[in-house]
C-alpha cells in the first residue's frame, strides 16, 4: 500500500469480526491484491510500486458471546466463501477454557471488557503464529483512532497516547500489526459497504454499552460539527506527542516473556495469565485496576507452584494455556486436559 505497510509476498492475516470495518478491509485487500497482481505482466515499470502479491488470510476470534459473536461469525463465514480466503477461528473457550459468557457469569458486567480485550490481543497473536503470517491488519478507522487518542488523554495514559496512532506497531518481539484505515473515515467505510452491498454484521456487543468510548464518540462528533477537520487534527496531535523516558516509565521496562505461557510480558506473569489465575481461583479482581497489592498477596505464595503447573503437573482444576513457543505453523489447538 502507498504507506509501504507490507512487502511483496508477505503473508497477512486480516482480523475479521464480521463488522463493517473488517468486512470492507477484507474486501479491499482482496480486490487490490488481485487487481495489481494481474497487472504485473503489462506494467513492468509499476511492478515495484504496485504489485502486492500478498497471501491473505482471515483470522477471527470467537469470544463465546451467544447472541452476538456466533451470529457475526456466520457473517465472516459467508464472506470467506465470497472472497475465497482461508479462515481460522480461535475461541476463548479452547484457548483459555473460559468463554466470555462464562466470565460474565462469574464476574458480572463490570470490567468484563478488560478480560475480553486482554484475551483477544493474545488470541490474535496466537492465531497469527499458527497461520505463520508476517503481519496482522485490523479495521480500525480514523474515527476509532481519534476516539482512542481522546480516551488516552482523559485517562492520562501517556504511554499509549502516541502508540495508539502508529499505523504500524514498532515492537520487535511481536507480529507487527497495522491499521490500513487509519486515515479512512467511518462514514466512508459505511458508504463503501452500502454501495458495494457488502454483507456485514451490525449489532453492538451485548456485554458492552461501552460508556467510556461512547462519551468520547459524542464529544468527537460535537467537535466535528464545529470544526470538520477535527478527527484528522486529533490523530495528528497524537502522532506529534513525544514523551521522555523519565515521564514514561513503561518505555523503559525490559521486555521479557511470561513465565507461564511464553507470551511477551514485562512482568513474570502476563496480564492474560494473571486474569486467568484470578478466574480459576475465584478471585476475579486479581488483574483489575491497581494490581500491585493483590498480586503480592495472592501470588507470592503461589509463585513456586506457577512454574510447576505450566510444565507437566497439570491438574483438571488448573486448565493450562499452551506455551507460546509450542505453537506451530498450522498447528491446531490442543484441548485442555
Amino acid at each position: 500500500m502507498f504507506l509501504k505497510l507490507n512487502e511483496i509476498g508477505d503473508k497477512i492475516a486480516i482480523a475479521a469480526s464480521g463488522g463493517k470495518d473488517s468486512t470492507v478491509l477484507a474486501h479491499i485487500m482482496k480486490l487490490l491484491n488481485e487487481r495489481y497482481l494481474n497487472r504485473k505482466i503489462f506494467f513492468h515499470w509499476l511492478l515495484q510500486r504496485y504489485d502486492y502479491g500478498l497471501d491473505l488470510f482471515l483470522l477471527s476470534i470467537d469470544e463465546g458471546i451467544s447472541g452476538y459473536r456466533d451470529d457475526s461469525l456466520e457473517t465472516v463465514k459467508r464472506n470467506q466463501l465470497e472472497y475465497q480466503l482461508p479462515l481460522k477461528i480461535l475461541s476463548y473457550k479452547d484457548l483459555y477454557d473460559w468463554s466470555m459468557d462464562d466470565i460474565v457469569k462469574e464476574i458480572g458486567r463490570k470490567n468484563n471488557c478488560t478480560f475480553c480485550g486482554v484475551f483477544r490481543r493474545q488470541a490474535l497473536d496466537r492465531g497469527a503464529v499458527m497461520l505463520g503470517v508476517d503481519q496482522i491488519v485490523t479495521g480500525h478507522n480514523a474515527d476509532d483512532i481519534a476516539e482512542t487518542v481522546l480516551m488516552n488523554i482523559l485517562r492520562g495514559d501517556i504511554a499509549r497516547l502516541q502508540r495508539c496512532t502508529f499505523i504500524k506497531t514498532k515492537s520487535e518481539e511481536t507480529i507487527p500489526r497495522s491499521k490500513p484505515f487509519k486515515y479512512t473515515y467511518e462514514k466512508e467505510i459505511v458508504m463503501y459497504a452500502y454501495f458495494k452491498k457488502l454483507d456485514y454484521f451490525s449489532t453492538e456487543c451485548i456485554y458492552s454499552p461501552n460508556a467510556y468510548r461512547g462519551h468520547a464518540r459524542v464529544f468527537l462528533k460535537d467537535l466535528e460539527a464545529i470544526r470538520p477537520s477535527t478527527i484528522l487534527d486529533i490523530i495528528h496531535s497524537g502522532e506529534a506527542f513525544e514523551t521522555s523516558a523519565e515521564s514514561n516509565p513503561t518505555n523503559v521496562t525490559v521486555p521479557g516473556v511470561c513465565n507461564r505461557c511464553g507470551y511477551m510480558s514485562s512482568r513474570d506473569l502476563c496480564k492474560a495469565c494473571l486474569l486467568l489465575e484470578g478466574l480459576n481461583r475465584g478471585l476475579p479482581k486479581l488483574g483489575i485496576g491497581n494490581t500491585e497489592k493483590l498480586r503480592k498477596k495472592h501470588l507470592d505464595e503461589k509463585e513456586k507452584s506457577i512454574g510447576e503447573y505450566s510444565s507437566s503437573k497439570r491438574t483438571p482444576g488448573n486448565p493450562f494455556i499452551q506455551n507460546f513457543n509450542d505453537l506451530k505453523l498450522g498447528s491446531d489447538l490442543k484441548k485442555p486436559l
Binding site: S17, G18, G19, K20, D21, S22, T23, S72, G139, E186, K187, V190, Y194, Y200, F201, S202, T203, E204, C205, N210, R213, R217
Partner: peptide
C-alpha cells in the same frame, strides 16, 4: 431516503 447507523464494533 436511506438511514444507516454507524454503530461501533468491528
Amino acid at each position: 431516503i436511506v438511514l444507516i447507523s454507524t454503530l461501533h464494533g468491528g
